[in-house]
């Protein structure tokens, strides 16, 4: 068995901020599509760089929560959250826990 090459793709979220905030679901949706395309490549990992910004729960949910609902909790293992403030980190943890729980419940029956 050969080693799988791990490819890191970085998405800089501060390029999509108004001031220091990324806020709307509409802004997150195309980034999620970019994320899904990147993750479709075998072995790829994606770095979401939140340096210098805050994100609303809606933005994080559209970017990451919807991904969990579509692909399951394992997808989170291939995403690296970089440069998160305590607030952003808490929002990501909330969204991830909530949507993983929902995914598991939806697929339990």
């Amino acid at each position: 068995m050969g080693l799988v090459n791990t490819m890191n793709i970085q998405i800089l979220l501060n390029q999509h901020a108004h001031g220091h905030l990324v806020g709307s679901r509409m802004a997150a949706a195309p980034l999620r599509e970019e994320l899904e395309i990147a993750l479709a490549q075998q072995g790829a990992e994606v770095v979401l760089d939140f340096s210098g910004i805050t994100a609303t729960q809606s933005f994080v949910d559209e970017l990451v929560g919807v991904l969990v609902l579509r692909h399951g909790p394992d997808v989170l293992g291939r995403i690296i959250f970089k440069g998160c403030s305590d607030d952003v980190r808490a929002i990501i943890e909330f969204v991830a826990a909530d949507r993983c729980d929902q995914f598991i419940k939806n697929h339990a029956h």
Binding site: V47, P73, L76, G77, I79, I80, F81, K82, G83, C84, R89, I92, E93, A96, A97, D98, C100, D101
Partner: peptide
């Protein structure tokens, strides 16, 4: 019990 392991950098 719902907390998820995430990769922060």
């Amino acid at each position: 019990q719902l907390a998820v392991r995430l990769r922060f950098q």
